[in-house]
Write a protein that binds this DNA or RNA. Structure first.
Lengths: 252, 252
DNA sequence: TCAATAGTGTCTTTCAGACAATATAAT
DNA sequence: ATTATATTGTCTGAAAGACACTATTGA
């Protein structure tokens, strides 16, 4: 029996299907004190009440995925639209193992955010607490649901994205020095880079950074010349890319 | 009022939430007659009955996302486990615009598949028809839902994946010549590559291919020497990568 | 014999990485 | 003065891309 689409939809009963829900979770990264930090909340509600988890929540009926992720991020960072606009937000991956949430079948669409240094986190309505945790301390924390895996995937994606996109600039303010940019790479990749080579390379990639014509007011805290200031350029991809050093040749 | 997790779950009523569903859709690519083909089905059921669409369907209660995608792919390719094991399947992205499906709020987790040359497609239960369509003919087809966007994202991901992974071999049989591998790249990227340079480069990337020690029985159909045969190596990433030629330097 | 293709050689340019040198500014 | 940092220079080796050449085989 073939009916037309209009009749079909009029007779369609969504509640006949097993209850399912979709959430967004956000792996939000920032750099504080030269260390990579991850935004976590302590859950106020069941399940996993009292546990640390990624900020996230149900997608609302009128929202698309990106809007939901943005809203969740805003709630936990306490930031309005202006400062949020400087945060990079992209979809990471979706997670849907049948038992990943004890309530019912809940799929999570994880997102990844790169934020400049922000004020301390302020818990939203469904959180008791919110903080920026140094990722180095992650091994000591239990995370709710499958959030440990999501964080691991997000960190790997972040490290990889610095290679071929200019998103490292999203961890910085609107103007920055090459040294500060290098510090972002060193922090995310967890290894020191050669200052001279890095400097020359960044300037050689078209559209990565553009000069502001100005310099810092002072040199480094322990001496050194004033550094020139740059802002993010208009490139969406780095070409040639900045590859991570010595990641064991060809991962087998 | 804080309750413990057990009590909370006992009282939890999933049906109190708006009806939501999650589907998987698969962008399945293969190469036939030196042209990139996409697996499409003609929908037997409403909505969009009679329209062409990606193979896909609801995730079942006991399935995770990858299993659902694999099942949907199996249904439309008519392949059993053995041949399916040679197909590469990965998660692509999720789509959740509020009005993307007229029935109710339906999120789709799209997947991307690279298949060797397979028999003609056989429609599953929810399809009137199934076929491998040359992607060059896509502009002439209407696709259901937001599947045009999903296909575009899948094609771009595929082109990009050939650069830094050895997945091009997944479009070929267990043994192949360097010329056949080059043909995959030329087909997916849509541009000719220099045979000599490609040859040397593929052999120089550790773990990309390994020699079988044998050669083809015959040369090319219009002459030429017999080519040596190779199989896929154990590398997961190509280092150095095979970059697409002249993609306008730094996409702005 | 002719044409097509496999595979190799060579050269130039670009880029990555090591290392060094110079200049500037804070303490 | 000393020290740290920014910036530039130089060199080596890897890799990309252009071009040329030889060898092999089907028609």
């Amino acid at each position: 029996m073939i009916v037309n689409e209009q009749d079909f939809l009029a007779a369609y009963d969504p509640s006949a299907y097993p209850a399912t829900a979709v959430t967004v979770d956000v792996v939000a990264l920032t750099i504080r004190d030269n260390a990579l930090h991850l935004l976590l909340i302590r859950r106020a509600e069941q399940p996993y009440a009292g546990h640390w988890a990624l900020p996230g929540g149900f997608v609302r009926p009128d929202e698309d995925l990106a809007a939901a992720a943005q809203r969740e991020l805003a709630e936990e960072t306490g930031l309005g639209g202006d400062r949020l606009r400087r945060v990079h937000l992209e979809q990471l991956a979706s997670y849907g193992a049948p038992e990943r949430d004890p309530r019912m079948r809940i799929f999570s669409v994880a997102h990844l955010a790169f934020a400049p240094d922000l004020p301390d986190a302020t818990p939203g309505t469904d959180a008791e607490e919110a903080l920026w945790l140094p990722v180095a301390e992650l091994p000591n924390r239990d995370l709710a649901f499958d959030h440990r895996q999501i964080v691991a995937d997000g960190l790997e994606r972040a490290r990889s994205k610095l290679e071929y996109t200019p998103l490292a600039t999203r961890f910085l303010g609107p103007e920055f020095t090459i040294g500060e940019l290098r510090s972002v790479y060193e922090t995310v990749w967890g290894q020191p880079l050669h200052a001279g080579n890095f400097h020359r390379k960044v300037l050689s990639v078209p559209g990565f950074v553009e000069s502001t014509g100005t310099s810092t007011e002072r040199g480094g805290s322990r001496g050194g010349p004033r550094a020139r200031l740059y802002r993010a350029g208009d490139a969406q991809l780095l070409h040639p890319a900045l590859l991570r050093p010595t990641r064991e040749d060809a991962v087998r």
